[in-house]
Each structure stands twice: as structure tokens, then as C-alpha cells.
Design a protein around this nucleic acid. Sequence first.
RNA 1: GGAGCGGUAGUUCAGCUGGUUAGAAUAUUGCCCUGUCAAGGCAAGGGUCGCGGGUUCGAGUCCCGUCCGCUCCGCCA
Length: 594
Amino acid sequence: MRSCYCGQVSESLTSQLVILCGWVHHRRDHGGVIFIDLRDREGIVQVVFNPEQTEAFASAERVRNEYVLRIHGRVRPRPEGTENPDLATGKIEVVAEQVEILNTADPLPFQLDEHVSEEVRLRFRYLDLRRPQVHARFRLRAKVTNFLRKFLDEQGFLDIETPMLTKATPEGARDYLVPSRTHPGEFFALPQSPQLFKQLLMMAGMERYYQIVRCFRDEDLRADRQPEFTQLDIEMSFIDEMVLRNLMESMMRNLFKEILNVELPNPFPCLTYREAMLRYGSDKPDLRVPLEFIDLSDLMKEVEFKVFSQPANDPDGRVAALSIPNGQSLSRKQIDDYTSFVTTYGAKGLAYIKVNDIQAGRDGLQSPILKFLPDQVIQEILKRTQAETGSLLFFGAGKAKMVNDSLGALRLKIGEDLKLVQPGWKPLWVIDFPMFEWDDKDNRWMALHHPFTAPNVQKIAEVEATPGTCMSRAYDMVLNGTEIGGGSIRIHRSDMQSAVFRLLGIGEEEAREKFGFLLDALKYGCPPHGGIAFGLDRLVMLMTGAHSIREVIAFPKTQTASCLLTSAPSPANALQLRELHIRVKTPQAVEPVT
RNA sequence: GGAGCGGUAGUUCAGCUGGUUAGAAUAUUGCCCUGUCAAGGCAAGGGUCGCGGGUUCGAGUCCCGUCCGCUCCGCCA
């Protein structure tokens, strides 16, 4: 049907006959000569229609934007002075001899080269996807998955599929449920991840498994969270965390080298969870922002200023500062804006000190909290923060979680606002996560990672004695402030697994019911194993410079988890519901919860 | 569940402290035009101001509710 792609017509084809297929990108009708920019997957080429070619010219007059054409034409260099350096094919043009209109097109709801709202883009996603820039992201995504498959295959990993219709899990995210027709009143769950299946594959002796697999979580959406998303899921037997991390680093380094021609560091820097929280207030720090927390908790224990002294003396409290070089130039209004920004993270306010003149001591400082702090404390603050004339110090005080959340978010926002974000790629590992986190709401321990993560101690008694300080063998890979992967060495002994379930408040009976198959499998010769899962959408988002994973998912959902293209979800008809043994209570019919 | 921003022509937007017939650009349609490449010129058509209610002599504009989109908090082992 075609002899070559539009985007690949080059000078080497000069005076040859080509057959092109594609869409009318633009049409310029000069009355006596008509130009059509013909677009296909590989690019755009200019086709010229002269009146001498009567039939072709007549067709070209009828043609409109986005008509689908098949063109026979001859390649020739453009006349001198009419080359277009902005076009890859700009040195040549194709003189049309025959045109076939393969299809007409109604005027598009929007023009492909104009800015258009995401709402309209998603409703007409198939048109949005025609745009070359949008196209490019999916081409890159395909190259990424192809590279990953090749790499893992060469490393001896087996690509094995796991069920989409599976069992609901307690803990973790809300499940998407699928009613069973053959088992009235019972439901499958779509997998939040193939976690247990990949562990079972290790117990099955597969040793190295990977899968590029869709996962489902029925939670609220964000720019980097969709209800269905894709993981690169990996599991290995007879390894420890260093083997796995080294291999995964190597995979990432090779990926970035091959796809983006970028050299990632070797090895990746590695931070403990504790250090990451201390220095950045985040377990996924963006190392491109050259600002760090300065801890002041010890300094504030004795001050009379309760806002600082109280958290300083609270074991769960924290006082920390963020020093902004040249932050003095921030206006009162900007500081007010940052204050209301941190209140969304639970902060009561945002104390600050402007350093107008570092030489002038207290007189060189400007701050509403100055009067509450003794000279010696002020001197120590200035010393620790390495403040200079022009610096602005922000303070966070309160529960450690709140200080970390608010100051951590402020660090990123200021980094962006003041253009402090360094260009490039900053990957790192975060390790030594706590095994458990106390949940005040439910009054119980929660697994920070998931309940199958191995503690970094051998003895069950040790875990049970010190759940609050016990570390896990989990690791996260972070890139430019985004968590792109996480995993762990797993528990491979049933007694340890039972103990962890117990600590999490999962009783014997519930553990049997929900995870009986896992506990059984652990008894029949389970190898030590561990793995990791990467958020493929997030990874590709970063690699393409997109600001949302929706940009790298062909047909994404909106924030309320609906599809503007297909109008899913939609009501089921009565017959379907009857077969599934389901009766729907419409929202109006639901009795108010008392 | 909560906070913020937005919703006006097919599209992207403007529309001031409420006041004639709601504008621009672009797209569309017609005519003119032989070297453009976001072609150009002339002309025309195109509006449930998201939806519902309220205030007012009068509402795109003010108030209340609601729906939709986006960002964030909660949530996401």
C-alpha cells in the first residue's frame, strides 16, 4: 500500500516514485498550487499539487484537514530558498501524480497543534494520541518495556503470568471486587500486585521471575496514581538484598544509557530511612533540591518558647529548620503563602528569621519569634544553619511526622519556586525501614511495607520484644523525588510469618482463612527469596518529562476514576445483575448512616 | 471525607464595582490567490455563559446548592 513512511522520505530518494499513506496535517491552498503536509507515524512531508496534474489537483482541492490519503508522487529537492529547516524532510518535497482519498474526516473538535484542556483531550483521546509529542511518549514507553524484557530475559528471568481474578487481601489498599456468577454472594478481587503469586513461584522453584503486569487499587487518585497501573514485578530466590539491588541498579543504568543516553551514578547513593527523614523529612527525597533540614530539637529543650520547647521535649516531637540562601528577598505575601501551604500538612504556623546582616547579631535579624529566644540559642541556630546575610530560616515544630511532612513539602516547593532544582537524574536507595508503625486510630501495629517483608533479625522473640524499633529488609528505589520501586527480602519461614501476622493483629483463624495457602507453602521447602516491583508508569513519566502518569497511559481515568472516552463505569442491566446475584441500592435509597 | 483553582462559540480565552444586541483568536463555510510551511486577503455562520435555586427592576457577573475537570490533604500494606 505504501513504499515508505512520510517522515523517512529523504534526498536519497530524489527523482524516485514513492507511495505515501497518511493524514492531512495542514493544507495550504494558493489557488494555483496546493501544499499538503502529509503526516504518518514517522513524521511529516510536504506534498505539492500542480494544476497540470488535473485529477490530483482537483482531489487536493476537495481535501480537508485529517483526511486520509494515499499519494503516488515523485521526490525532488525543493526549489532554492524554499527549504524548511524546521522539518526533518524539509530539503525535499513530493510532487503528487495520483491521489486516493482513503477516508474523509469531519473537522476535529480541536486542532492537533493547539493547547487544549485535559478534559477534551481525554474525551477524544484517540485524536489527542495523534499528536506527534503524545505519540513520542508511547514510543519511548515501548522502548523501555522492550529493553526491560530483553535485559531480564538475558539474566535468566522467566516471564510468568499470574491471575487477574484472585482473592481479596486484608491490609493494604481497597480491592476492586468482581462478583462470581457461579458462587452466589462471593467475589474475586483484582490484584493489588502479584505479591503472593510471585512468592509462590519462588516456592515452585522458578528462581527468577518477572512480569510486566497490571495492578488495581481502589483508592483516591493523584497525578502519579491511577486505579489501574503497571508494575515491573521481579522476584529472585537464593539472594540477599545486595545481589538484588546491584542487579536492579545495573538494569536502571543500562536502561537510562540505552534510552536516554544518560549515565546514572555507580553505585546509587543509599540512605537509611532514619537519615532520609532527618535530612529531608521524606522517605523519597528529591536530591536535586540542595536544601536540607537542620535539626534543632536538642537546642530547644530549655527555651521558654513553648511552641519549640514542647516538641523538643516530646519523644515523638521535632524542631527543625530550613535555610534558604538569598531567601531574604521573599516578600511578606510569599511568606504568608508558604504559611498557608504548610497548614495543609497540619502545621499551626511557619516561624521564620530573616538574616539582614549576619555581622550585626540580634539587631541584624528580623523575626516575630526573636524575642522568645535567648542570644546563645540564636547564635547556635545561625551557626548550625550556616546562615549568611540574605538567608531566610523557616522553622517547623511539633509532632515529627507533621514537621517532616510540612517542611519536607516546603523544601520541594521552595526548591521549585526559587529555581533551585538542579537538572539531571538523582537516583538513590532508601533502606532500613522500620518493620512496623503504630497506628493510633486502630490501636495496633501496621506493616510499613507489607506483612511478608522479613525483619532484619533472625529470632522471632526479638521481633516480638521490640516491634517498635525492629528494622525490615525492605528497600525503595527513588528517582528525583519519586518512589519508582520498592521491595524486600521476604519471610521464608512459616513460624516467622505467623509471628508477624500475630503482631499485626491478624488472628490464627483469619491468617488461616486469608493466607492458609501461603503458610502451608512455606512449610514445603521455601527458598530464601526477595524481590522488587517498579512503577512502570512513574518511571516512564520521569523519563519523558511528563507531569502525570496519565500522559504515559493510553487511556487513563480521571480523578473520580471514570473514563471520559467510554463513559465507564456505567450501570449494569437487570439481567447481568440477576445472574450475578446482585441487587443495587441506588444512593438515594441507601438509608442514612446513624 | 476535606481544601484550593477552573467550567463563557468546535477549541483556547477576555468579559471591571450587576446595566444596550456577550467579544477576540483560532477552527468551520464561501470567494480570491502559483512557493507556502501556524500561508495570506475578503466575507459569513457559530452561544442552554456547566446545571438548579435565590437576591435584584435587571445576573455571565452576587449568594446557596449541585455536577464535571485539575492540584493537594486524608487514603494509597
